[in-house]
């Protein structure tokens, strides 16, 4: 019984380390803090009451994110958000077009379609590799690569970075 309590405590501590990032991912998928909070808490409940969990950390993170993602898909929240919610109206971010500040980046991120925002959050914010993100989302790694590059192009377009632009169409050398 003592061992069970120590184990439960360790599991909770492990989940707490990922908790903020998990919530941010839920926010990215739902675009709604309340829904995201509900989903993340339910995912946490499933994690804490699961019979076992992956031992190594990368596998644990993939497992955690998969639970949350599957949960949102099961509840059809993801699809409903995609269909029913218009993109957030941007605030007046053009106070300094050249400033690539956290505010402008955050606001630009909010304007991305959910599928693009998801790969940005997974790869750029949460540090997943293309292969890991692909396995999580259930698409080929090449799709993650193209979705991510489109997302970044769109971000830069929204931010209006004067010095950053996509190169003209050409096939890479070799």
């Amino acid at each position: 019984m003592w061992r069970d309590e120590r184990k439960a405590s360790a599991r909770r501590a492990r989940l707490e380390r990922e908790w903020t990032r998990l919530f941010r991912y839920a926010c990215a998928l739902t675009r709604d803090r309340e829904l995201a909070g509900d989903a993340a808490q339910e995912a946490a409940l499933r994690v804490l009451t699961a019979k076992s969990e992956p031992a190594d950390d990368p596998a644990y993170r993939r497992w955690l994110y998969s639970i949350l993602r599957n949960l949102l898909i099961d509840q059809s929240r993801l699809q409903q958000r995609e269909r029913g919610t218009p993109a957030t109206e941007p605030a007046d971010w053009r106070f300094d077009e050249r400033a690539l500040s956290a505010i402008t980046v955050r606001q630009a991120l909010e304007q991305l379609p959910v599928a693009m925002k998801e790969v940005v959050v997974l790869v750029d914010l949460d540090g997943f590799s293309y292969a890991e993100a692909a396995a999580l989302i259930g698409v080929p790694a090449g799709t993650v690569m193209s979705r991510l590059s489109r997302a970044r192009a769109m971000l830069l377009s929204i931010i209006g970075g004067a010095n950053i632009r996509v190169l003209p169409n050409r096939h890479a050398a070799g």
Binding site: E5, A8, S9, R12, L15, E16, W19, T20, R21, L22, F23, R24, C27, G37, A40, Q41, A44, L45, L48, L100, S101, A102, V105, R106, L109, V120, D124, L125, R152, L155, L156, G161, N163, I164, R165
Partner: peptide, 26 residues
């Protein structure tokens, strides 16, 4: 430019997450 954007994204604050479900252990 891409690297700079990545750095800005990585520097974004995560925001206020709700508390974990109440499961005090120990």
């Amino acid at each position: 430019g891409i690297v700079r954007l990545k750095q800005e994204l990585q520097g974004l604050p995560a925001g206020d997450a709700p508390p974990l479900p109440s499961f005090p252990a120990a």
